[in-house]
């Protein structure tokens, strides 16, 4: 998303200057708009912090189901976390969660081709869940800084 845009555009368009895919500002700004008070940011803050809790809990569950090799549950959890991360605009986490969903459903990353070998799927899941966790941590850092809470 790095774009050599001119400085004027750079300043006026917050969406284009976010150099990472961690947070989709379009989506996130929409949540900020729901705040009644832009100093307190009560609503968006609560929703973001709820998400932190939810994500941590979900990752814990994922680890558990990884151990149990429960692909179906992993797929379902992937879908679940995909929903909320997409809502907040955490694009990377969302993408990884989508992959968790697909791998758990014994398919390839895009969800189009079947993967007959469960071990392959499990192996992929391990990797992608680790990636998702890392991406979540990145996003969490940014967001905590945003809410002056570090």
């Amino acid at each position: 998303m790095a774009r050599p845009s001119d400085p004027v555009d750079d300043r006026s368009d917050a969406g284009s200057v976010l150099d990472t895919d961690i947070i989709d500002t379009t989506t996130f700004e929409q949540i900020l708009e729901m705040d009644d008070d832009e100093d307190e940011r009560e609503f968006s803050k609560s929703i973001v912090y709820d998400f932190f809790t939810q994500a941590e809990g979900t990752f814990e569950k994922m680890d558990k189901f990884l151990e149990q090799k429960n692909l179906a549950e992993l797929s379902s959890l992937g879908h679940f976390l995909k929903g909320s991360s997409a809502t907040l605009g955490l694009a990377k986490v969302k993408d990884s969660c989508e992959k968790i969903q697909h791998y758990g459903a014994k398919k390839d990353a895009s969800g189009t081709t079947d993967e007959p070998d469960d071990e392959v799927s499990l192996d992929r899941l391990k990797k992608i869940i680790a990636q998702a966790k890392a991406e979540f941590k990145d996003a969490e850092k940014i967001l905590r800084r945003f809410y002056h809470d570090e």
């Binding site: 998303m1 790095a2 917050a14 200057v17 976010l18 150099d19 990472t20 895919d21 961690i22 947070i23 989709d24 500002t25 989506t27 996130f28 700004e29 900020l32 708009e33 832009e38 940011r41 997409a86 605009g89 694009a91 990377k92 969302k94 993408d95 989508e98 890392a134 991406e135 941590k137 990145d138 850092k141 940014i142 967001l143 800084r145 945003f146």
Partner: peptide, 30 residues
């Protein structure tokens, strides 16, 4: 106000992105 805050967010993101951003272009499904 939102813009101001987003700028802050972006700055924060930049700092983090140097460490962990791997810039995947396949996020088109958002």
């Amino acid at each position: 106000a939102n813009k101001k805050d987003l700028d802050r967010l972006r700055r924060g993101a930049r700092e983090t992105s140097t460490s962990g951003g791997t810039g995947s272009g396949s996020s088109g499904s958002t």
